Amino acid sequence: MKKGHEKFYEFKKSNEEMTDLYIYGDITSYKWDESDVGAYDFLKELNDVDTDNLTVHINSYGGSVSEGLAIHNMIKEFKGNVTTVCDSFACSIASVIFMAGKERVMHKGSLLMIHHAWTWASGNAKDLRKQADDLDKITEPSIVIYEKNSNLSRDEIVELMDNETWITAEEALEMGFATSIKEDDDAQQSINEMYLNHQVMLNKDLEKELNEVKEALKLEKAKNEEPLTGWNAFFNTKK
C-alpha cells in the first residue's frame, strides 16, 4: 500500500480553549501523491480549528518559500490568539512562520537562522542575472516580516541575512524577534508530546491497514466456502 510523504505539521486539540500545531520537518510543496500535503491541505485543517487559542510549535530547517509565506499569512489571519514557540530550530522560512505569533516564545536551548532565498540556476548570463533579480524580490517579503516583528532597521536585517546568521534565544529577545524565553524543560516536554502524538497516528494507520487485511481475508474465506450447486456439486463430491 503506497504512502505519501510524512506530513510536516500536525494539529492537536488540547482542550476547549487551546489547539496545538506542530510544524516539525521540511516545509514542502511537492505533491507526488494524493496523500502528500502542502499549504492548501494546511488551510483546510486550520479552518477546522474551533478554539480561541492556537500555539504553533516549530522545529524545522525551513523549505519552500512559497509554502512558508502562505502558512505565515494563514496563521496571521487566524481568528483567535496565536503564540509561536521555537522548540529547537526555526531556520530559513520556518523563522518567518515563527514571526506569525503575537507572542513569540524561544526556549532557552533553541535557535533561529535567517538568510536570503536561494535556488539552483542554469542558462546564459542574461538568464542568471534575471534569476538574481528574481531572488531579491522573493526575499523581500521575509525582510518586511522580520522588520515588522523586531526592533532592527532594514539595513541591520539585510546584513544578518547576508551572513546567514544563527540567533540564540537571548539575541532573539534583544532584537525583538522573540517576546519571551522559556526554560529547556518545557522544550523537552513539547518534543515528548510530539513524539507521542506521532506514535498514536502511526498506530491508528497500522490498525486501519490491519482491519482492511482482515476484511479481505474474510471475504476470500467466504468465497471459498460458498456451497456448490448443479454439475459443480456433482463433480466436486468428495468420496
Rank of each mutant, 00 (worst) to 15 (best):
D136P: 05
S92P: 11
I93Q: 04
Y61N: 11
W120N: 03
I58V: 00
D133Y: 07
M74I: 04
I157Q: 04
E147A: 13
H116Y: 10
G62I: 02
D50C: 03
F78N: 06
S64F: 09
S64C: 15
M161W: 07
I145D: 03
I71M: 14
K148A: 15
E147H: 14
W120I: 00
L46I: 00
M106C: 06
L46H: 10
A94L: 00
I157T: 03
G80S: 08
L152E: 09
N149H: 14
G109Q: 14
L128I: 08
P141N: 03
S64V: 02
A121E: 12
V85L: 06
N124W: 05
S150T: 11
G62A: 08
M74T: 06
L135Q: 14
A169S: 14
V158I: 10
K76I: 11
G109N: 15
T165Q: 12
C86F: 04
R104L: 03
T55Y: 01
G101N: 11
W166G: 05
F89P: 01
N124H: 01
I157P: 06
G123A: 01
I75A: 02
K102M: 05
A121N: 08
S153V: 05
F78W: 01
S88W: 10
K102Y: 12
M74C: 05
N149C: 10
L112A: 00
D155G: 00
V65D: 15
D162K: 09
S110M: 02
D48H: 12
R129K: 15
A70K: 14
T83R: 14
D52L: 00
W166S: 09
G80A: 04
Y146I: 02
S95H: 04
G101D: 10
I97A: 01
